[in-house]
Amino acid sequence: MSKQVVFSLSLLLAFIFHCNTSLAQAPDILEILEKPGRFTVLIRLLKNTGVANQLNGELQKSNTGYTFFAPPDKAFSDLRSGAINSLSDLQKVELLQFHILATFVSLPNFQTLSNPVPTQAGDTSAGEFPLNVTSAGKDVGLATGVVNATIGSTLYTDDELAVYQVDKVLLPLDIFRNYKPPEPVSESPPVAAKVHESSALSLTGHGMWFSIGIAASVAAFSL
């Protein structure tokens, strides 16, 4: 075998190894979200809609990277009952795509973005899916026209993907224009305490009348 052939084979093997290594090291959005254990609703939506496979596939070939905003289970539980289940399959996909930016953005670079920030959900120029970002140091706010959310922590970051936890589900204006948040639950005095007080009063009254009855009987007998 000539030296030229050996050299060519070496280059080919090196190329194949590099490609396999790159594929193995590519981030997986589901694995990232499964580790903390508080994104079960989001994971289920990503799987059922196919958005997880779509995002993972795009990460394999993207030159600009992606940014993903991840609401935890509590953020979904704070929504009005049926808010997500009532959506069509297309709307669920758009909701998840609204949480994705088709570029890698580190925390300091949020202040360089121009509003409205384009997401994977649709064209912001038509006013359908506006997302406005405010940044002051490490504090980043996200306004959708329906809710105002903040970035709480960084779940994952490298040169390809940034995943940030947000405190609310980012509800796009085009889908949730008529959405009304659930009414806050008002606190009322414990029912058990009221029952106890009433019972105590009733027992006291019966005891008083019982004592008066004994006293009257004793007086009549004496007479």
Results as ranks from 00 to 15, higher is better:
94 E>R: 07
25 Q>I: 03
3 K>H: 01
65 G>Y: 05
88 S>G: 12
223 L>W: 13
134 T>R: 13
19 C>P: 02
40 T>M: 00
197 E>V: 15
88 S>V: 12
60 Q>P: 09
105 V>H: 03
3 K>F: 00
58 E>G: 04
190 P>Q: 08
206 H>F: 11
21 T>S: 08
167 D>G: 09
200 A>V: 15
203 L>W: 11
111 Q>H: 10
132 N>K: 11
158 D>G: 03
11 L>P: 04
127 G>A: 08
25 Q>K: 09
93 V>I: 12
152 G>P: 10
89 D>F: 02
171 L>S: 01
46 L>R: 10
173 L>H: 04
67 T>E: 06
70 A>T: 11
168 K>S: 01
65 G>C: 05
172 P>M: 04
141 G>R: 14
111 Q>G: 10
63 N>W: 04
138 K>F: 01
24 A>V: 02
92 K>F: 00
37 G>P: 06
217 S>E: 11
164 Y>W: 07
220 A>D: 09
135 S>A: 10
90 L>G: 01
206 H>K: 15
71 P>L: 13
105 V>I: 11
73 D>Y: 05
38 R>N: 08
204 T>Y: 04
173 L>V: 02
166 V>D: 09
96 L>M: 09
84 I>G: 01
205 G>W: 14
209 W>C: 13
51 V>A: 01
190 P>Y: 02
178 N>T: 15
52 A>Y: 05
82 G>Q: 08
57 G>K: 11
136 A>I: 15
51 V>T: 11
171 L>Y: 02
116 P>S: 03
170 L>N: 01
47 K>W: 00
148 N>K: 15
153 S>V: 15
29 I>T: 06
124 T>H: 08
43 I>Y: 00
179 Y>G: 00
22 S>G: 04
22 S>K: 14
168 K>V: 00
200 A>E: 13
5 V>H: 00
136 A>H: 15
130 P>M: 11
85 N>P: 09
151 I>C: 10
191 V>W: 08
218 V>N: 03
17 F>L: 14
22 S>T: 08
134 T>L: 06
218 V>T: 10
210 F>Q: 12
40 T>N: 03
215 A>Y: 10
174 D>C: 00
223 L>Y: 12
87 L>V: 09
191 V>A: 04
200 A>D: 12
181 P>V: 15
194 K>W: 14
104 F>A: 12
132 N>I: 01
155 L>P: 09
115 N>R: 13
155 L>G: 02
213 G>L: 12
161 L>H: 01
127 G>L: 07
132 N>R: 14
196 H>G: 03
49 T>M: 01
113 L>Y: 12
212 I>F: 00
